[in-house]
């Protein structure tokens, strides 16, 4: 019965994608070339993660779950280092500091939730939650690097003015964070504002459809949004502290 349901869903999803692809080809928007492989991969990835969680739930070994989370973090740090815009820092350093920033900020949260028993270490609970946070942290580092690069180019003169007046790395770092962090967190802050009014966020939709009590679903969603805010706010800050502490504040023309 469940299998039939799933099959229906996949077929429906592909019909939707197909209609987009057909319209696209007819009007030459050029999106379909990317869509075809992506739609296949995304289905495979999602099913794969489904099987992994199924397997991990059956095995019931918390240690193995933590290992999976560690693997996700390494992946996220790797993607951050690939996407990082500011070329003054070597990708290896970006990878290392992204890893520590994502791990420190988000493991702290997971640990806290585990401590007060909001979250248990069973695979079907901790893995999706950790994934959500780690992805938020990764995204915030990418966004941050983009805003940082823009700032370093746009405000090069002012930053030189600061250095000329004896500003140390700490002063310049704080100046840059003050400008870049509000921009980095725009998306998540907007999501908080719009939650419930403009849209019902994904986690809540999932819980509601799975039959969870609406109030329980609402408070869980609220915690998820707050956690994402925490992650997107602190991950880039920790990252920037680490990288500037160990590698310095680089302008476009380093010295």
């Amino acid at each position: 019965m469940e299998f039939v349901q799933s099959l229906k869903e996949v077929i429906l999803a592909y019909l939707l994608i197909l209609s987009v692809v057909l319209f696209d080809i007819k009007n030459r928007y050029g999106v379909w070339k990317e869509l075809l492989p992506v739609s296949v991969f995304s289905l495979i990835q999602l099913t794969f993660i489904g099987f992994v969680i199924l397997y991990l739930t059956k095995v019931g070994n918390s240690f193995l779950n933590l290992l999976v989370i560690l693997f996700m973090t390494v992946n996220a740090a790797f993607i951050s280092s690939k996407r990082f815009k500011l070329k003054a820092y070597k990708p290896l350093w970006v990878f290392v500091f992204s890893f520590f920033a994502i791990a420190f900020t988000n493991y702290l949260l997971l640990f806290l939730y585990w401590l007060i028993d909001v979250l248990r270490t069973e695979a079907h609970m901790i893995i999706p939650f950790a994934g959500l946070l780690i992805a938020a942290g990764m995204r915030s580092i990418s966004l941050f690097s983009q805003y940082l690069t823009d700032l370093l180019i746009k405000e090069k003169d002012i930053l030189e003015g600061m250095f000329a007046l004896g500003a140390g790395n700490r002063v310049v770092r704080n100046y840059l964070l003050k400008k870049a962090i509000p921009l980095t967190t725009v998306v998540i802050r907007d999501m908080l504002k719009a939650a419930g009014i403009v849209h019902i966020p994904g986690v809540m939709v999932g819980l509601l459809m799975a039959g969870t009590h609406p109030i329980v679903a609402a408070t869980m969603q609220f915690l998820v949004l707050a956690s994402m805010l925490f992650s997107m706010f602190f991950t880039p800050i920790v990252f920037y502290y680490l990288i500037t502490h160990f590698r310095g504040v680089f302008l476009i023309n380093p010295r």
Binding site: G161, A167, G168
Partner: peptide, 30 residues
Amino acid sequence: RRKVGYVFQNPDNQLFMPTVRDELLFAPKN
């Protein structure tokens, strides 16, 4: 830079603090 002070051609390069007083105290604080 501690021994050689530089006054930029464009004064805006040096003016980034909220008030003139903060601006004048920026370097001594550093």
